[in-house]
Write a protein that binds this DNA or RNA. Structure first.
Lengths: 125, 125
DNA sequence: TGAGTATTGATAACGCGCTTTCAAGAGCAT
DNA sequence: ATGCTCTTGAAAGCGCGTTATCAATACTCA
């Protein structure tokens, strides 16, 4: 028989952290938000639940150059990310301004693209 | 007095590795290429010399999401990078097809951008 | 309510990229 | 060629993000 999945306060708090945030969170950020809801959540539990949520495709990983992986809830429209050089937070930028017809070398096939913006966010100015 | 800089076979082989490659190399890749020229080069020497070359701005670091840092010779025209999902190599893609006028949230200031292409390179198809 | 077992917290351990250590080797000025 | 000292190789060490360990806790179902 399959192992049964249980609801726990920690799991709920971690899911809520991602739902409340309108931007991709690092495990550390998710921990901080979850702890405002449930007093004691450990970083190990955050990592465990992130992995579960990624496996069931409720979360998707967002990899940023030179940064640790962030996670955001799945199912959003195509968008890109803005990385604040001051506070390190990653924000979502709506739309895709990329005309995906860059000239590739012969024989190359493109299957996807990522576009990152860098700068200073409103809170840091 | 300032410490004197010496020319060595290893240093020359590492520089040549980057000159020969028309794409950004990881330290491991640079090691492989350098070893075809000088029998014994250690990875420590590759890292040491990469750091020296970055400090004197002969090399510039290229950070790829989820990958270790690559390095390419400085002074090239504005371009972006293609990451092969099969072999992991990073290639250069000429030109910048990005109309940088994405609508940012209010108060955000953009200072730069990065554009990555993903797919399969000619050698892997 | 109580039994059975999935989940948690605290912490040790891991992997990987990178740096440091130090004795041996080798440029460079003389 | 000689000597000074910068550079190298091999391996240990480090930092950080992440995972494993294991006893204690707490869901869920009967």
């Amino acid at each position: 028989m399959a192992i049964q999945i249980r609801q726990t306060r920690q799991k709920e708090a971690i899911r809520n952290a991602f739902l409340k945030a309108d931007r991709p969170l690092s495990p550390e950020e998710a921990l901080g938000t979850a702890q405002t809801e449930v007093e004691a959540v450990s970083i190990a539990t955050v990592y465990r639940n992130i992995n579960l949520l990624v496996a069931e495709q409720w979360l998707i990983p967002v990899e940023i150059p030179g940064e640790s992986t962030r996670y955001e809830v799945a199912g959003k429209e195509h968008h890109h990310h803005f990385h604040c050089n001051d506070c390190g937070k990653v924000y979502e930028v709506e739309g895709c301004a990329v005309p995906v017809k860059t000239k590739l070398p012969k024989g190359f096939r493109m299957t996807g693209h990522e576009f990152f913006l860098y700068g200073t966010c409103a809170a840091c100015r």
